[in-house]
């Protein structure tokens, strides 16, 4: 069965995924909106940056984050100068790492969804007196809602599943930065296969249920267009 330490790791994992997903949706929505509609010349640069975590080994991202967030890095140094502590090996550090690492999984579905909405419904809303912000919330968001669901679930599931970045910047501190994926690794290293099975099997089922839910939802709620 799950031990207390496993349950703590599970709680940290879910909290990390929830906080990261929330931040990702808040940051990713305006970013995806801009990417989905901009015709700017340098849009491709930003698109490439957003997609980087898809191709980089997580350890590369984790390594740079470790340096940046550590006491001698720009972010960690600033935190220290302001009287805080460096962010490496903290939960906040994990959230920053997760947000960067899962960014493409949130931005890309949103960007595609906004692009699929197109300009016409927003123009129609403009002729019906809706201001730009009003149009965004009453037309673009409802029409892109399957994109929001996909983005949230992918961001959440991907954060639960990450390993490399978390290991590099989290430092595997039980009760603070030890998440499930790392706990599983620890169990396997110490040959506690039964405990590894419980956690690994649990993650497998959770991930499957989440993904099956998005696909089922998207099928049911696709707007029936003529």
């Amino acid at each position: 069965m799950l031990t207390r330490a496993d349950l703590v790791a599970l709680a940290i994992t879910l909290e990390l995924a929830a906080v990261s997903t929330l931040i990702l949706l808040l940051l990713g929505t305006p970013l995806a909106w801009w990417l989905g509609r901009s015709r700017g010349r340098f849009k491709f640069v930003l698109e490439a940056v957003v997609a980087l975590p898809l191709v980089l080994p997580p350890t590369v991202l984790g390594f740079y984050l470790l340096i940046a967030l550590g006491p001698r890095g720009p972010v960690g140094g600033l935190m220290q100068a302001l009287g805080g502590r460096p962010l490496a090996f903290t939960f906040t550090g994990l959230v920053i790492g997760s947000v960067l690492y899962s960014l493409p999984f949130v931005v890309q579905p949103l960007q595609n969804a906004f692009a699929a909405v197109g300009r016409r419904p927003l123009e129609v809303a403009a002729t019906l007196r809706a201001s730009p912000l009003d149009r965004f919330f009453t037309v673009a968001v409802p029409l892109a809602r399957s994109g929001f669901l996909t983005a949230a679930v992918l961001g959440f599931a991907h954060t639960i599943g990450e390993f490399g970045v978390v290991l590099m910047i989290g430092g595997n501190i039980p009760g603070e930065t030890q998440v499930l994926s790392i706990a599983i690794y620890d169990h396997v290293e110490s040959l506690e296969y039964a405990r590894a099975h419980w956690l690994a099997g649990g993650l497998l089922v959770l991930s499957f249920v989440l993904l099956a839910a998005i696909y089922a939802f998207n099928r049911r709620f696709r707007w029936v267009q003529p």
């Binding site: 016409r120 419904p121 129609v124 809303a125 403009a126 002729t127 730009p132 029409l143």
Partner: peptide, 27 residues
């Protein structure tokens, strides 16, 4: 959106997520 103008587009331009009533009341 600050012009008191009504516009009827060539192809269907109703908001698919609203009923006909929701569409008429939107503006």
């Amino acid at each position: 959106h600050r012009r008191a103008v009504g516009y009827v587009f060539q192809e269907t331009s109703l908001f698919p997520h609203l009923t006909a009533r929701g569409n008429v009341e939107y503006g």
